[in-house]
């Protein structure tokens, strides 16, 4: 399996809004652990270490750029 990086969501704006809304409700010191919990839940749902590896590489590239 390859990580899908073209749009895979029926409505990308909704996904983005959901993330924003969830984080707006949080105290500033909770953003990191909130995201960590989200990553762990989604990683388990995806259930494929190869996809996780590719996603980590893409994420690393995005912060290095």
């Amino acid at each position: 399996m390859t990580l899908r990086t073209e749009n895979n969501l029926p409505d990308p704006d909704t996904a983005y809004r959901l993330l924003v809304a969830a984080h707006r409700r949080l105290a500033p010191d909770l953003h990191a652990s909130f995201d960590a919990a989200l990553v762990l839940l989604l990683a388990n749902h995806i259930g494929d270490p190869e996809i996780l590896r590719q996603a980590l590489a893409a994420a690393a590239a995005s912060v290095e750029a």
């Binding site: 990191a32 652990s33 960590a36 919990a37 762990l40 839940l41 388990n44």
Partner: peptide
Amino acid sequence: DYEHMLRTTTLRLARHHGFA
């Protein structure tokens, strides 16, 4: 510090979720 936070998060999730 990051690994500590990740672990704390995992331990919290583990109270309710089998995967954690």
